[in-house]
C-alpha cells in the first residue's frame, strides 16, 4: 500500500468556533492509483491533502506511506521523507517569486541531500514536458496563471516522488491546459506513482480512476 489513511480526524479550533475539517476519514491508494476528491468549498479537501502529505498531523487516526508512519518520525526525518517521496501541487501555487521558472523547479531538490539532487537535464526535460522551455528564465510574476500551474506541477514531479498530491491543479486553467495537466497526472500514475487529486471540477475528476466525495469533513465513496 502506497498511502493508507485510517480514521483521520482533524478539528480546527479558534477561540470562538470549532471546525471539524476531517471526520473519520479513511482512504487507501496503491501504486498506479489516480483518485479524485470532489467536494464543495470548505469541505476539508485541502486539509486531507496536507494531512496525507505529512504537513499537518491529524488529531487522531493513522497515516502510513510506503508502510512507514511519518507522523511518528522526528520533524527533520519527516521532512526528508517528504522531500523524497511526496510531490505537492498547491492550490495557491506557492512559487518562489524571486526564482526563475527553471530555479523554481530546481528548488524542489533543496530538501534532498546534495548528492541526490536532480540534474539540470531533468529540469529541462520537465520544462519541455510542460511547454515552459521559452519561459525558463521568467519569474512567476511574468507568467500566466496556467503557466504557473504547469510550473508548479513540474516542480512537484522533479524528485520522482511516489505520491503526488494535487490541490485544484486545473482550477484556473482553460480547457486545453486543464487537459494537458490531467494527461500528465495520468501519465504519472501510469508510471507507478499514486495521485490524490482535489478538485471541485467534475470534468477534471473524470480523468481519475476513482472519485470520492467530501462533505463537511466526511469522505464517501
Amino acid at each position: 500500500m502506497l498511502l493508507s489513511l485510517e480514521g483521520l480526524n482533524k478539528v480546527y479550533s479558534t477561540s470562538s468556533t470549532k471546525v471539524q475539517a476531517l471526520c473519520d476519514v479513511s482512504l487507501s491508494l496503491s501504486e498506479g492509483d489516480f483518485v479524485a476528491v470532489q467536494g464543495p468549498s470548505g469541505s476539508g479537501k485541502s486539509t486531507l491533502l496536507l494531512t496525507a502529505g505529512t504537513m499537518l498531523a491529524p488529531d487522531s487516526g493513522r497515516v502510513s506511506i510506503l508502510d512507514e508512519t511519518p507522523y511518528a518520525m522526528p520533524t527533520n526525518m519527516r521532512a526528508a521523507f517528504r522531500a523524497k517521496h511526496i510531490g505537492f501541487v498547491f492550490q495557491q501555487f506557492h512559487l518562489v517569486p524571486y526564482l526563475s521558472v527553471f530555479e523554481n523547479i530546481q528548488a524542489a531538490s533543496l530538501g534532498l541531500p546534495a548528492s541526490k539532487r536532480m540534474t539540470n537535464s531533468k529540469v529541462e526535460q520537465l520544462l519541455e514536458q510542460f511547454g515552459l522551455e521559452s519561459r525558463s528564465r521568467h519569474t512567476p510574476s511574468q507568467l500566466s496563471v496556467g503557466e504557473r500551474q504547469r510550473c508548479c506541477i513540474a516542480r512537484a514531479l522533479l524528485n520522482d516522488p511516489k505520491l503526488l498530491l494535487a490541490d485544484e491543479p486545473s482550477g484556473s486553467l482553460d480547457e486545453s491546459n486543464a487537459r494537458i495537466v490531467m494527461q500528465e497526472l495520468r501519465r504519472f500514475s501510469q508510471n507507478g506513482g499514486a495521485v490524490l487529486l482535489v478538485t471541485h471540477d467534475s470534468r477534471a475528476a473524470q480523468s481519475a480512476d476513482r472519485i470520492v466525495q467530501m462533505q463537511s469533513g466526511v469522505l464517501t465513496c
Binding site: 502529505g53 504537513m55 520533524t75 527533520n76 521532512a79 526528508a80 521523507f81 517528504r82 522531500a83 523524497k84 505537492f88 498547491f90 495557491q92 506557492h94 518562489v96 517569486p97 528548488a107 524542489a108 533543496l110 530538501g111 534532498l112
Partner: peptide, 16 residues
C-alpha cells in the same frame, strides 16, 4: 511566509 511554507513542503529542515 509562503516561501517558508513551501520550503517545509519541499522537505527543508528547521536548520536550513
Amino acid at each position: 511566509k509562503s516561501e517558508i511554507g513551501l520550503m517545509r513542503a519541499l522537505g527543508l529542515g528547521s536548520a536550513s
